[in-house]
Design a protein around this nucleic acid. Sequence first.
DNA 1: ATCCCTCTTGTAATCGTTTCCACAAGGAGG
DNA 2: CCTCCTTGTGGAAACGATTACAAGAGGGAT
Lengths: 344, 344
Amino acid sequence: MPGIKDVAARAGVSVATVSRALNRHPSVSEEARARVLAAVEELGYRPNAVARSLRTDQTRTLGLVISDVMNPYFTELARAVEEEARALGYSVIIGNADERPELQDHHIRNLVDRRIDGLLVSPTDGGTPLLLDTARAGTPVVFVDRWIPGADDVDVPVVRSDGRGAVRDLVAHLHRLGHRRLAIIAGPAATTTGSERVEAFREALAAHGLELPDAYIGQGDFQAGSGRRATERFLDLPEPPEAVFAADNLMALGALDAVRARGLRVPDDIALAAFDDIPWFVHTGPPVTAIAQPTGELGRAAVRALVDRIEGRTARSVTLPARLVVRRSCGEDGETHPQKRSDP
Amino acid sequence: MPGIKDVAARAGVSVATVSRALNRHPSVSEEARARVLAAVEELGYRPNAVARSLRTDQTRTLGLVISDVMNPYFTELARAVEEEARALGYSVIIGNADERPELQDHHIRNLVDRRIDGLLVSPTDGGTPLLLDTARAGTPVVFVDRWIPGADDVDVPVVRSDGRGAVRDLVAHLHRLGHRRLAIIAGPAATTTGSERVEAFREALAAHGLELPDAYIGQGDFQAGSGRRATERFLDLPEPPEAVFAADNLMALGALDAVRARGLRVPDDIALAAFDDIPWFVHTGPPVTAIAQPTGELGRAAVRALVDRIEGRTARSVTLPARLVVRRSCGEDGETHPQKRSDP
DNA sequence: ATCCCTCTTGTAATCGTTTCCACAAGGAGG
DNA sequence: CCTCCTTGTGGAAACGATTACAAGAGGGAT
């Protein structure tokens, strides 16, 4: 693979001139530039990003550590992140933590070893000092979707969406349909999205004079299996809930499994709703009512915030509202057939 | 961020010794090694992967270019690839080509600029000389899932799955259920998976004495929208097909949309089957019969082949069989309820 | 005492860029 | 004609690691 020296020799100039020509440095003659460009073309020269990074101390690469690639919510997020990053001239390396703190640490370590310019993290459960230490050590970090409470002393913007309003809408929707015994399958208490959603749900219930008994709080881990188990426990209760709200899409899927396995039907026997809307919810039987985050916008905003920090500007936290998307899984006041207008 | 020099100073040895201690070079005294390790610990030193790569001319990084991250099939593949790579001591950078040749080229260029050690590609439609040129230029390349025909002169192993047998099973299944007019929604003819699946389908039909008229071949692009459009065209036919086979999961989804939008029902009014099984197909209404590729195994085998090539061993192409998973979308001879045993 | 290993260490070259500095050439202004 | 800019260029020093080579120390055999 030809190097800058080969180009220089071929163009009859020095390596310095080649470098300048390629980096559109102003002081290089039109003639030299042309010769360099020609040589580059002839040799098929491509600058070595590794060497360049070593010299300039920047890799133009962002790290993205997410908790579960297989979760459609995160794939959509990752896609948006990559697009915006590319538009801004950055590449993205994705690390999949699989909801395991030690894997998250592995990826963070790997990414800082590679000297990425900044880090985008949706932290998993569990105490990992490494992440905060990294931020403290000077690597620009932005949290997206979830965040870690102890981040006050170090400047880490949080880009997330607020589901409070949408949860209120959901509870009102359920209430209107006559449901009174409402349960939730929560995420890990250690994640912010885990605890927040329970709180929002509890508050919304209170506004209707309803309680959230402990028996109606299932402990999940954002994976389908836990959703199924929690739902089975609900169904075993002497007085099972009339509606179940899953704190993410995978657990909702598990819940759907569980009620089906008992020969029960959604929404006739029990209503179901989920946090995180995903394309598949349109096609499930029945289509499930969900709270939709502006996922793409979240990803883009996060990248912009991170790049702002990287390039020396100040970055602010961003909170975008989520909204309720009513389908059929809670009962018949939503759309009964897919509507033409809801086509993409 | 401390460098190897700082560690050397702190440990009272030379940088060479530090490097040797860290790379478990045999000839370094127990005492020196201990001092180095202590210094590393105290300073929180992490070796700079960029500098190391420049010197050693290897990045221990693999590039993975796939055609669509949002497609669950590819996310699963990506996940398996990352896992196997990690086990072998490599990192993975994913590039999402979004079924667009120019984006694919962008990523390939970006990856070779970063001097990745090897490239895993599931090529998109369309002639892109860059990919083959890269392979010819010496970068180890392995094709996964799809491949490019002109790759004979250059050593590029192909890791894929053969759906021929499963397609025969599917057609037999459909035939047994009484379906005679069978249609297919094909992928882009330029992709191997696009054309191969049509051929397999046609052959399987022939075995039952059935034809595949042109009107029953829909042209899709592996995206949901094209599946919907193709299905609408089928339904507008004077004699619409009794069963539709979509060549990937996204187009199957589009097909499902289309028949629902007409107020028709699967499988009563029309049967549906898909290539690529994904977790969601269990939960759709109705659960859809699909041909399952051993996706994880494919990803792992591809990584092993690529690493073999990188590390100087010879790599062989791999073909794994796919299998038919019968559910309810073709009619009632499959499982009518989710079975306990099919639980993960 | 000399020679020759082996074991451990340090010095310095190297990877492919970018960029600081010096310098030559040419034009403008005195 | 000298000085002072401006413009374009090349030489060489970084960046932070790995590694070839040289060399000192110690030990055993002669």
